[in-house]
């Protein structure tokens, strides 16, 4: 199993923004949000192809998402705002109210696991101790 350390950034995309207006329980929303963007060389290094799943691990949690090629720099990965990236972001705000939603150290691994469906994400959130 290959892995790579990256700086993870989360943010808005047009597809995330338009599909959440349709329905957050729709396939379209899951397809546009349960994903990570990485550059071509980083994907080769891990051994993952466009559309394959990867596991994103941080010290706060873990999520399985689909990998998408992007022109982003080496060592940086981007995930759209949504419940999947929420799994790997910490809740400590250092007294500011604002969690670290951008610039989180993460490890990306190849995986055989499936992307969690939205209903399962909700179940997982309910189960966090």
């Amino acid at each position: 199993m290959n892995y790579m350390k990256v700086i993870l950034i989360s943010g808005r995309t047009v597809e995330q923004g338009t599909s959440l207006e349709i329905s957050k329980t729709s396939e379209e929303y899951s397809n546009n949000v349960a994903m990570i963007m990485m550059n071509e060389n980083d994907m080769k290094e891990i051994g993952v192809k466009e559309g394959e799943n990867v596991e994103v691990n941080t010290k706060f949690g873990s999520a399985v998402v689909r990998c998408k090629e992007s022109k982003i720099d080496h060592g940086i990965a981007f995930m759209p705002y949504g419940p999947w990236v929420n799994m790997v972001i910490g809740a400590d705000t250092q007294g500011t109210g604002m969690p670290d939603s951008k610039g989180v150290e993460a490890e990306i691994l190849t995986t055989d696991k499936d992307v969690l469906r939205i209903a399962n994400v909700i179940t997982q959130i309910k189960g966090i101790k």
């Binding site: 949690g61 949504g82 419940p83 910490g90 809740a91 969690p99 997982q124 966090i128």
Partner: peptide
């Protein structure tokens, strides 16, 4: 607003 969609899961878990 929809905190479960946009808060760290470690925070939104309490809402459940």
């Amino acid at each position: 607003s929809d905190p479960v969609a946009h808060f760290p899961a470690q925070a939104s878990k309490h809402l459940a």
